[in-house]
Structure formats: C-alpha cells, structure tokens
Design a protein around this nucleic acid. Structure first.
Lengths: 203, 203
DNA sequence: TCCAAAGATGTAATGACTACAATAATGGAA
DNA sequence: TTCCATTATTGTAGTCATTACATCTTTGGA
C-alpha cells in the first residue's frame, strides 16, 4: 500500500524521535535522559513522543519482532523435526549475525546500555516472557503435551539467558581478529553444550 | 540483641504500614491503591512509608528471604548430593507448605494480586533473578564448572516458573477435599516430571 | 475551495519517588 | 531528674513518566 504524505510524515517523525532517543540513550544512559530531553532534541512536543511510543522503554526497544524468531522457526520447521534442534539452529543463526564484524561493537554497546538501566532490564525480562509465551503457543500447535511444551519454551528462554551472559563475558570489546576467532569458538562450544543439556533432558 | 523501645516502636510502625498496605492491595489490587492512601490508612506521613520501604512493591513483597531457600538448601546438602535432587526436595517441601489447608486460599489470593499488576509481575521477575544469582553462587562453591552451575540455576528457575503456573491452573479455588487431593497428586506428578527432565539433562 | 480526519501541541493533573529542612520522641550521660 | 545527641517522623517542594483533554494545524479528498 502506498503511503500518502501524511502517513509518510508521521513515520518520519517517529523515526526521528527514535533515532535521537537511541543516540542519547547510548551516549548518556537510559535513566539519565528524560523524555522531555528527547522531545527537545527531536524538536517535538513531549506529547508527540507519547503519541508514537507508549512508554519510554519503547524508544529504546524499537525494532520489535526479534522475539518472534523462535516461534516462527518452530512453525516453519518440517513436521518431524526435533524442537530443540530447530531452536538451536535458530539461536546459532541469530548469534552468528550478531557476531558479524560491523555488528558486534554496536551490539555490546546496546547490551551495556540495557544492563545499566533497571527499567531496560525489566523490559527485557518482559520481552523474554513474551517470547516464551509465543514459543509455547507454536509448540502447542505441533504437539499436544502442554506441560512439556511449556517446559521446552521455558528451558529455551533459560538457555538463551545463560548464553547471552556468556557472550557478553567472553567477547572482548576490541575485536582483535585472533582473539575474536578464539572467543567465537568458545562461545559456540558453550551453545552446543547448553543445547545438548536441553536435548538430553527433553528426549 | 534486645530491642529498645525506640527500635520496637519503629518495627511496630513498619509492621502496621505493611499490614494495612497488604490488606488494601489484596482487596482492591496493587495499582488501584496509592502510597498516599496506604499512608493515610496507617496514619503516618507518606515519607514515613518510604523511610521503611524503598519502593511501593516492597509493601507487598515484605517477608523477603523466601528466595534464598534453594541456595541455602544447596549449601546445607551433603557433599556428594546431586544438586537436582536437593533442589527438587526443596521445591517439594515449599510446595507442600503452600498446599496446607489454611495457606492455600491465602496463597492463591496473593498470586492473583500479583498477576493483576504489571508492577508486581515485574518485581517477581526481578526476585526470580535474585534467586537465580544466589543459587549460582551456592553451586559455584561446590563445583568449578561455572557454565553448568549457571545453567543449573537457570533451569531450576525455569522449572519453578512452569510449576508455579501449573499450581495456579490445577488447583481449584474452593478447596473441596476430594478434588484437592486429586489436584495435589497431579501437581506432584508434574513436579516429578519436570525435575526428571532437569536431572536427565544435567546428568 | 472547503471540510472532516488525523497529527501535533500545550496545559494541567496524577502518582511514585527524592531531597531536605524541621520537629518530636527517646536513650543515656551528668 | 535534666539535658543532649540520636534518630524516627513529618512537611514541603521538586522531578519525572504518564494520562486526559482541549486546541491548533496539516492534509486528503469531495
């Protein structure tokens, strides 16, 4: 559908606010920047910010949708596939994307900003719960054992959390190619190990 | 240590505030009650409330300490014991306490209040994270494999979450003794099943 | 050209929480 | 008992996110 000028301008405003906000948050920390400042920097009214984003956290977590990945992966997987295999492949794929050269530094910066803000941490937990819920739903569509499905989703979320921590602690900030290679291998070994536990448990 | 009158009075005030607050929250829901109302009902200044409780949520989650259970259980367990066995026993113990006649209705009421409030849900997630952290620490004291310890703690937290949901959905509000017996058995089967998954996975 | 829809703005209010200064109760020293 | 240093309690003022609502502005289309 073609967007008229009106809709286009609206998206422009939204994008401008989001960009300005993200830059400020990354630079000075989420809690140290007020919505009023964001509005001023984006040259709009505070109300306008809230017209586009339901809460301050949404200014940071803008590109929503990453948390639908696992559920989608399950839905798109062939009928006989082991859910844990599917989820491991999905997780591995996401991780490799994040490790790409240009992305890594940015990613760590984002995560550090999250870790520096109680509000963002809380929001991340909420999102993880969303992911878990949607994954449970997807699993319910292919298998009738609800307790097991719920557990599978919960274990996946747990695995993801643990591995995410691992990624942060193992990867050096300055991407010295040699070390990075090394760290990446260590990380992939951890991934394999963690998913092996899930697979064995849920066998 | 003996408490002087001053300290005793302080605790009295604190308790009075907490009691009044809990009653109000259970009755009308956490978000529908303002701190100012709590203060008025307890006949103290709003400031006094915040002198005793760092945040509104602390008025509800007062008896802190339940989340130290798993870590303590691990520390008190004999050297050779399998962590998953210890954690299952601990969880089972806690569950049975909650299922005692007088407790159940109260417990469900509490949980429903939590589930009715985004703020309390967020706080519960935070507490679960605390539990996970302290459990990881305890596990680190008896085994050197940090990744595995971290994973064990995360899987325990996941199990707990799933089983907690189960408890809420399986147990009828009106405790008809026969049904309750039935539900309790079903619940304990679910507990065994979930922990069996952990045990197998972490074997 | 003009109107109705929809976006942007401004104002005022609520509610949690903090900073800070003032007040009051109290435990212990003289 | 009297007086002082603590310390609990209070009151005031302010910050910040968020909402309600009325108003202004832009714009798509009749």
């Amino acid at each position: 559908m073609e967007l008229g000028r009106r809709e286009r301008k609206k998206q422009q405003t939204r994008q401008a606010i989001s960009d300005v906000a993200t830059a400020l948050f990354l630079e000075r920390g989420f809690d140290a920047v007020t919505v009023a400042e964001v509005a001023r920097a984006a040259d709009v009214a505070v109300q306008t910010v809230f017209n586009h984003f339901p809460a301050k956290e949404d200014l940071f977590f803008d590109e929503r949708g990453w948390w639908t990945g696992p559920a989608r992966a399950i839905r798109e997987a062939p009928a006989g596939a082991d859910p844990v295999d599917v989820l491991e492949a999905e997780y591995l794929k996401g991780t490799r994307e994040r490790l790409e050269v240009g992305h890594l530094a940015t990613w760590k910066q984002f995560v550090r900003t999250i870790e520096g803000s109680p509000a963002l941490l809380a929001r991340r937990r909420l999102t993880a719960e969303e992911l878990e819920r949607s994954l449970t739903e997807a699993l319910d569509e292919r298998s009738p054992d609800q307790l097991r499905n719920r557990l599978t989703a919960a274990l996946y979320a747990a695995a993801q959390k643990v591995l995410e921590e691992r990624l942060m602690s193992v990867l050096p900030d300055d991407a010295a190619p040699a070390e990075l290679e090394q760290a990446q291998h260590e990380l992939e070994r951890a991934i394999a190990e963690v998913f092996a536990v899930l697979r064995r448990g849920l066998r």
